[in-house]
Design a protein around this nucleic acid. Structure first.
Lengths: 186, 203
DNA sequence: ACTTTACTTTTAAAAGC
DNA sequence: GCTTTAAAAAGTAAAGT
């Protein structure tokens, strides 16, 4: 039984999408002056939304990548909004986009400090290199995620494809830390 | 010293040619970084393991050799930073760090966490500090160290701050800049670590 | 000295070099 | 491997006041 209840907050959701048709990025650039498109630098066009505050990359293939959402649903809504704006701008988009959540990033507070040095020695699949980065990097197998642990007791969980996986990852790790006496509560 | 590997070079296979290049490169780095033969032999051993695992394909051999040397330093607790290896090998720190992580994962290597106490001597000799100050700094780090102020902090920054505090207590006139330069960190970092040290040691 | 900006790490997808 | 997007964690760094 964990001694504290972790506070989890989703910070970023990455979703891939497709409208299944070729897109003319130069035409979009003409009708939407504030998009960024530098084909020599990167093949995707950057389409930013103020609400939800997101950035969507649009490729000539009609495939897209939406980043910056705070939830799975917000990501789907953002993609729909982008397609809607394109249509209002006169760009023909026949089908609605199909969306797939690719990555969820969350920050967590375990409510107690972590003994990083000991964790580095006892946690499998972990790397702790304070010369390079202050956090310990732990690769969890199930769910397949990567968790960054900091001595403050805060974490970053990334790689999850659905929100329940974030909670499962955090609970697995929290139990493991307590089991190995790596948690320090006030 | 590198007899074990040199003997294998008698057979002229591509692999041995690769080894020869690795050995000459390691010998060159050995002088620049002033590390012992044991470190070089360990680096050669790690490099050979990397070759056997086929980790060199499509990768920079020089970067792999440099990272094998860094791994050897870590394994033998020889205080050499990625920055040190980078300057000696002319390979970007980021590339060495990336290869080092590759070695850890692919060869299943487990390295000890860098002990800031082991960094004291190197910084002290570069800055020309006394034996007494080194001893004092060691005591400071052992006392504070490490109830927890060290977690997540750069070992060189911690050692540099401890040495600076030791200088002040021993009346050895050395500026933060002198110590910072010898340690390869900024004065700001020494000041920040100093704050934590002051609290942990009731200075 | 203090603030601001920025880079370190991790993750995933997109198209192309 | 790189290029681009976003985001958090905490440490380090550099530039400007």
């Amino acid at each position: 039984m964990p001694q504290t209840k972790p506070i989890v907050s989703v910070e970023n959701v990455v979703a891939s999408a497709s409208v299944d048709q070729k897109m003319d990025l130069n035409e979009i650039t003409k009708t939407f002056p504030d998009v960024e498109y530098h084909p020599d630098q990167f093949p995707g066009l950057v389409f930013r939304l103020k609400t939800p505050k997101t950035a969507t990359l649009i490729f000539t293939s009609g495939k897209m990548v939406c980043t910056g959402s705070k939830s799975e649903e917000m990501a789907r809504k953002a993609v729909k909004t982008v397609v809607q704006k394109l249509r209002k701008g006169g760009i023909k988009v026949k089908k609605d986009a199909t969306v797939q959540i690719q990555n969820i990033v969350a920050s967590i507070n375990l409510g107690g400090k972590i003994h990083l040095e000991q964790a580095a020695r006892t946690l499998p699949r972990s790397m702790y290199e304070p010369e390079q980065f202050p956090g310990l990097i732990h690769r969890m197998l199930d769910p397949k995620t990567v968790i960054l642990l900091f001595s403050s007791g805060k974490l970053v969980c990334t790689g999850a494809k659905q929100e329940p996986d974030v909670y499962r990852s955090v609970n697995n790790l929290h139990a493991l830390l307590e089991e190995k006496n790596l948690m320090i509560y006030d | 010293r590198l007899r074990t590997w040199d003997s294998r070079s008698q057979v002229h296979e591509p692999v041995d040619r690769n080894f020869r290049q690795a050995f000459s490169e390691l010998d060159r780095l050995k002088d620049k970084l002033a590390v012992g033969d044991a470190v070089i032999e360990k680096a050669a051993y790690i490099y050979r393991k990397a070759l056997e695992k086929g980790l060199v394909r499509g990768r920079s051999i020089s970067a792999l050799i440099a990272s094998a040397l860094y791994a050897a330093c870590r394994d033998t607790e020889t205080p050499r930073t990625l920055k040190d290896i980078g300057q000696a090998s002319n390979i970007k720190r980021k590339d060495i760090a990336r290869c080092y992580r590759l070695l850890l994962r692919e060869l299943n290597l487990k390295m000890p966490v860098v002990d800031p106490v082991k960094c004291i001597s190197r910084i002290a000799s570069k800055a020309g500090l006394s034996e007494k100050t080194k001893r004092k700094a060691t005591k400071i780090l052992q006392t504070a160290e490490e109830n927890k102020i060290s977690a997540g902090k750069d070992p060189m920054g911690l050692a540099a701050a401890a040495l600076y505090v030791a200088c002040v207590t021993n009346g050895e006139n050395k500026t933060q800049r002198d110590v910072a330069e010898a340690a390869g960190v900024t004065e700001v970092t020494i000041r920040n670590r100093y704050k934590g040290l002051k609290i942990a040691l009731n200075l």
